[in-house]
Amino acid sequence: MNPAAVDFSKSAIDYASVTAQLPMGVLILDQQQRVCFWNEWLANHSGIAAATAVGQPLAELLPELRSSRFWSALDQVLRYRLPQLLSQALNRYILPLRSHHHSRYGIEYMQQQVRILPLHGSDGHDYALVTVQDVTESAIRAKAMVSMMQRLKEVSLRDPLTNLFNRRMMWNWLDQQMKEAQRYNKQIGCLLIDIDHFKQLNDTHGHQVGDDVLKGFARCVEQQLRDADLFVRYGGEEFVVLLPGSHYIQLGIVAKRVLEAVRESALGGLSAGGVTCSIGASCYRPATPCGADELLRRADKRLYEAKRTGRNRVVLPPEPPS
């Protein structure tokens, strides 16, 4: 017999056995939201047998099903016969079904894509057909991809030797923070720091020691800063510290603390005092705003002044009028 000619409406296929084979949940609800059909997949994943489920109001069968989106979507289907999609992107957990990925990924509940469709029964009544697809694996994949992208983004904004942020991050940060400083009338302090005689140190002790000094210097200065401050390797042996919300006096305190901490630390295997630094400071003030380039240029000018007058010192901006 030609298979295309088979009339399935008259065939002996048991459609309940078809839904039992489907790798998804299938349930049918009547106008009173009572379960009329509950397939084997749902029984396996919920631990509730079809014999128990059928005839029960869904809200009583699954009291943990509190998704307001699910109930309003079901209402749209039963009242107006308008099909509804509940995506995993916007609904993390819909039906309270346990995930098999719990032990490996810590995801307790299955992430789902749910469709609710109108169904017209041969008895003349309208029903809602609910299908539940397990999309936990694709959610895990998407999560892993997002975390990978974040890591890549992070890597592209960091200096590989010291793991400090790089210039690209600094310009992005300044662009954002200067707008906020302007809006909320806050200052931003800027320290441009240069390790004294670094070339000489490199030539005398070798590049490995030079690298260790840079790494040690980064850790030492980092300890003097707040979480909100941004610490950047600006290039070579030059570093920038940006201090949001810091005014003239705080800027001076932090700069001197950094200077002393570096002087008193044994960095890169050298004895304490073997490494010193010079610091030029500038301050962004909303009352007299300037661009990011100008903020750095002013700090650079004072760094040059600190170098010219003997190094191992801080040159601060002029004290603002009180």
């Binding site: 749209q76 107006y80 308008l82 509804q84």
Partner: peptide, 18 residues
């Protein structure tokens, strides 16, 4: 993102259709 947009579209379209 398309899946999220599909659901938002579904809510808006079906509310208007209702």
């Amino acid at each position: 993102e398309h899946e999220a947009m599909t659901e938002i579209g579904n809510i808006i379209i079906s509310s208007f259709a209702a």
